[in-house]
Design a protein around this nucleic acid. Structure first.
Lengths: 224, 224
DNA sequence: CAGATCAGGATTGTTGACAATCCACCCGAG
DNA sequence: CTCGGGTGGATTGTCAACAATCCTGATCTG
């Protein structure tokens, strides 16, 4: 008897995990209201469990609680996005620094090199979706190499408003090029064990991304 | 009819706020288990409200959830303390940087100067409790000057394990001296509008504190 | 005496029902 | 036609009761 479904249905944590994935995948539109009873029926549990999941996701920044109104998918304003961007800058910078400080195993070094190579391929092919996926994996890998769970947790949170941001197709190629040029610098600094350089490069990289996002049209931020 | 107590008793948020204060003030010992029903009776509400407050405080890092066992006052290990210290370093550094970037009103500049002066007085008097209080106010003021609510929120969270740490009386005087020397550098950088200098000084300041804390005996971390 | 086994009590996990609240719609007056 | 007020339905806020779970300590056994 390992663990898990002590009773039937998912636990509050399980429901929270499901909803987190849904929000990340865009199953709900920004600002959409979530009805306790609907989800309770869908998951086959009582409203209480759904409510607790809501409270967790509110604390993480995925949902917004409105008194007597319930929860909605949290929608960040441009100003908040910029504030979060500043935080992301230093936190991802820290992750890169810690990764460069860590004594990486050969396996981890290979993984980093392989990921960099896959990004290079995607860049050469001009394959934006693929590059985007590898880019996310790259940042996630650096978080893992850094080995600081608090940094990881907060980075995830300040990244939430970015999950739906789409690059305007016009400047995709240039954007990929600049982004991957940064990546190569960061990768080299981490592999060479240069914490300061890694941090500086990552900060500049994130900052460039933030400045790009901050200039996007208003429609990106408001509902659906 | 402004708002507030729609029914009798505190809301979940109100209970969470109360408990947060209690934990910060040390009303509960580290690792202490909190009983839902006891608090429900004390606040004159049902268990559900207390439960929701627990979930919020768990997300913030004040409590720890154990399945079928309830919550305990979260107790961080030395390793976690060090991890959080690294995060605090960059976040407080960011706050100092943002404060130096901001266009401060005359009133705010005066407030900062007054606080620095009060710390100087406490230092000269060798008044450790007073210096500790002013020190907390100082860091809080810088957060306010920075005007980034996400940075503030995360700084508060990574500070949680520090709330009970007591400086060994032996090196109090030296500790105050070094700490306040750092403060003067930071204050000057903020008032002069030197973001890079402010960030670097704050980082060094926090790092020095972290290294000091990391060397404290094990008793500080485990349960009271 | 040490260790395993097994009640009993205490506490959490969960639900369904009820009251309070809010919103959208409708209606009537100007 | 527009605006203010009221009304009904939908949804959240809350609780009290019940089931599941875990820990404590007493009992039994080798």
């Amino acid at each position: 008897m390992e663990e898990g479904a002590a009773r039937e249905g998912l636990s509050s944590e399980g429901i929270a995990a499901q909803l987190r994935v849904r929000i990340l995948e865009g199953a709900y539109s920004l600002g959409q209201r979530l009805i306790e009873m609907d989800l309770a029926e869908e998951f086959g549990v009582g409203r209480g469990r759904v409510r607790e999941a809501f409270r967790m996701l509110t604390g993480e920044g995925y949902l917004e609680f409105v008194a007597n109104r319930g929860v909605l998918v949290r929608c960040y304003t441009r100003a908040e996005l910029i504030e979060m961007g500043r935080v992301r800058e230093v936190l991802e910078g820290l992750a890169a620094k810690l990764a460069a400080e860590a004594e990486l195993s050969g396996e981890m070094r290979q993984e980093l090199e392989a990921l960099q190579e896959r990004m290079n391929v995607a860049e050469a092919a001009g394959d934006y979706p693929s590059f985007g996926a590898e880019n996310r994996a790259y940042h996630a890998l650096i978080e893992r190499l850094a080995g600081n769970k608090f940094a990881s947790a907060y980075i995830d949170r300040v990244r939430i408003p970015l999950i739906r941001v789409q690059m305007p197709p016009a400047d995709v190629a240039e954007s990929i090029g600049r982004s991957n040029r940064d990546h190569r610098v960061i990768t080299a600094a981490i592999l060479n064990g240069a914490p300061e350089a890694a941090e500086a490069a990552m900060r500049a990289h994130v900052r460039a991304g933030n400045e790009h996002v901050a200039r996007l049209p208003e429609a990106v931020f408001s509902a659906s």
